[in-house]
Design a protein around this nucleic acid. Sequence first.
DNA 1: AGCAGCACTTTGTAAAGACATGATGACTAA
DNA 2: TTAGTCATCATGTCTTTACAAAGTGCTGCT
Lengths: 248, 248
Amino acid sequence: MTDVADISVVLDRSSPIPLYFQCARQIEAAIERGELQPGQRLDNEVDLADRYGLSRPTMRRAIEELVAKGLLVRKRGVGTQVVHGQVNRPVELSSLFDDLSKNDQRPSTRVVSLETKPADDEVSEALGLAAGAPVLAVERLRFARDEPLAIMHNWLPPDLGQLDADALAAHGLYELLRSFGVNMRIAQQRIGAAAATTAEARLLGVRKGAALLTMQRTTYDDTGRPVELGRHVYRADTYTFEITLVGR
Amino acid sequence: MTDVADISVVLDRSSPIPLYFQCARQIEAAIERGELQPGQRLDNEVDLADRYGLSRPTMRRAIEELVAKGLLVRKRGVGTQVVHGQVNRPVELSSLFDDLSKNDQRPSTRVVSLETKPADDEVSEALGLAAGAPVLAVERLRFARDEPLAIMHNWLPPDLGQLDADALAAHGLYELLRSFGVNMRIAQQRIGAAAATTAEARLLGVRKGAALLTMQRTTYDDTGRPVELGRHVYRADTYTFEITLVGR
DNA sequence: AGCAGCACTTTGTAAAGACATGATGACTAA
DNA sequence: TTAGTCATCATGTCTTTACAAAGTGCTGCT
């Protein structure tokens, strides 16, 4: 019977930020501050809703947000508990560039090539275009702290916006797409491993045949249209994917 | 202005299966049958709820289920659409064994070792035990179609149940844990790549130094308690991880 | 003393109503 | 012709209420 914490949650009902979101963020912050210890029980939904002046569905939604994130675990008839162990943030719908920026890894980019050319079969299929339709093909080399980290190939429909090498050198691809008004929603990724080819080895500064992490991704926007196909290879000694899975 | 489909949904209100779930499954089935084409718009929530005799929140929840799965995409003021392209099932909270069984890959297992021994620092930390506390250590070799596929190391708290080599040879670890009443809820995974050591190469039937896919996982049950730590290596030529990410 | 069953707690499911907000297209005025 | 405004549509947010089901532990009966 662990005792139950009294987390202070301050809600601003005049803010455009939804109440359930404000509430979820503040509970999340309390967990990260250690105010809520792993294994500790939260009060039940009804009392919490009462205490914070929310309806039960709204309170519930806030908690569900954190359950989906893997921070909390709930069980009918028992209650809601904080998950043991520290949480790694899951792979999000963000680009490598964003991730590196957040972690002070000083990302930089060299644009190797940038051209419009006819799509081959795999690319046109993935992007839902006619075979041979023109696509924008980008190859970039990504550095973190001036160390080469990844070789990134991307193919995009040509009508998304005007990409130029300078912009790509200074910003992440996802950032640029967002600035064009593209709302990315769903990505399907396939993660594997492969040995470095001679060319890859030279670009990444590893020995030929060294193990590399490979990722292929198709991204769809909020209308379900494919907006990007990416094939990337990462140095395995510097990079790993972190994922949090939540069941049921 | 794509026309809108009239999907037949039959609900059984006397079934213990929730209405939103019944509804979601039937829409999902319609998508998989191709009755709903990629890019096609669904009717709006209110009409659908009306047609199926559900309240709007319940109808909404059904749709949200499919949005979370990456099958649908919705946009305020616009509507709900089927995502283009075929959907890969995301990495679920299931074991490799289950996955292989589903795909007729004829999984089999050789138990290399199975013993209780003191946890080293990393293991005890991951499982939330005292350093040196006894843990169950398992090493297995997993085959698919009689080809070696993965080397799997697992560490478990000793009080979960009685694992024996015969059971492990015939069933997946997750399956056995479930039969002990363990309800796995959250898993944190880290996916990387590494070159095969001599021992790994021999077990997996690849050349030394070949690229392997590595996965480290900590699994928590529905009380937030860690129940498993796994460190696995996969043959990269036979295995990849598939993930579907949903943003917002 | 042991065990079955009941009561209580807590989350899960469902409904109906209200208002907010983002998108879109049509209509109007400059 | 063009640009701005407005009506409309569809989803997003929030509330109140009710009952169902699962897990826990206690009580009372045998």
